[in-house]
């Protein structure tokens, strides 16, 4: 396995948590009720913490003297490896929750598998993160069920959110040469192998939520090889502003 493949894999993990953590943090101060404001910030904090670990390891593996912050704040969009799903705009609270749930269901399956990684550094990060993400999944799944099976309005909003985000879910299970190399080396699972677990989790929750997944296999893709939606450029413009405007400054 080439170090370049491992670097690629680690930035995929770290960029997912970075961009989703960023999106979730946008809610701080604006959530529908104080208890949710606080809970969402916990999720965002977990994701940012995981980003520090994934990108920190990526920088170490790369061995060019870059840091996790350099990777987060000084790469341009084309170098980002996150799923398109996580850069989707927050929308209403239902869209945010549905995005979170579909991601959490994948994230939990992925981290559970990574706990068995042949690379002990990867396994160590996964073991810490999987506990946090088990809680994220419990929370987002429960809220999807409650809101799906709540009022007519909440049901309608959750169904609309599901319809909207569904075409971005399939990218989680696509494999390329990097994934093949990771699977070959026993570092990470074949993405396709996570699909049955994800489908079982999602199927059960959607059924309890009285929601129906769109009947389509179509999936947008590109994030994992650096071809993003228009949204990522704006996220980075905001996130990287200080580092770009004051090159070399320490904060």
């Amino acid at each position: 396995m080439a170090e370049a493949d491992l670097f690629e894999f680690l930035t995929r993990m770290g960029d997912n948590t970075l961009i989703l953590g960023h999106r979730v943090s946008e809610w701080c101060g604006h959530a529908p009720v104080l208890e949710e404001d606080i809970a969402l910030a916990n999720t965002a904090l977990d994701l940012i913490g995981q980003t520090q670990l994934w990108l920190g390891l990526a920088a170490e593996v790369e061995g060019k003297g870059r840091t996790a912050d350099d990777l987060a704040f000084l790469r341009d969009a084309g170098a980002f490896r996150n799923l398109l799903l996580v850069e989707r705009p927050n929308g209403d609270f239902g869209q945010t929750l549905m995005r979170q749930f579909l991601f959490d269901a994948w994230h939990h399956a992925m981290l559970s598998a990574l706990c068995q990684s042949a690379d002990p550094r990867v396994a160590a990060i996964a073991e810490k993160a999987v506990k946090e993400v088990a809680y994220h999944l419990e929370r987002s799944a429960d809220l999807v069920i409650r809101l799906g099976d709540g009022t007519e309005e909440s049901h309608g909003r959750m169904q609309a959110a599901l319809d909207d985000i569904w075409p971005y879910a399939g990218e989680m299970f696509l494999a390329d040469a990097t994934d093949a190399a990771m699977a070959e080396a026993g570092v990470a699972p074949d993405p396709a192998a996570l699909k049955p677990v994800w489908q079982a989790t999602v199927g059960e929750v959607l059924s309890d939520a009285t929601l129906t997944a769109p009947d389509t296999d179509f999936s947008h893709k590109g994030g994992r090889i650096g071809i993003h939606t228009e949204h990522l450029g704006y996220i980075l413009a905001e996130m990287q502003f200080l580092q770009r405007a004051y090159p070399g400054a320490v904060w």
């Binding site: 959530a31 529908p32 009720v33 809101l147």
Partner: peptide, 8 residues
């Protein structure tokens, strides 16, 4: 957020 609080 009203729909969210009411839905729950």
């Amino acid at each position: 957020g009203a729909w969210f609080r009411e839905g729950l």
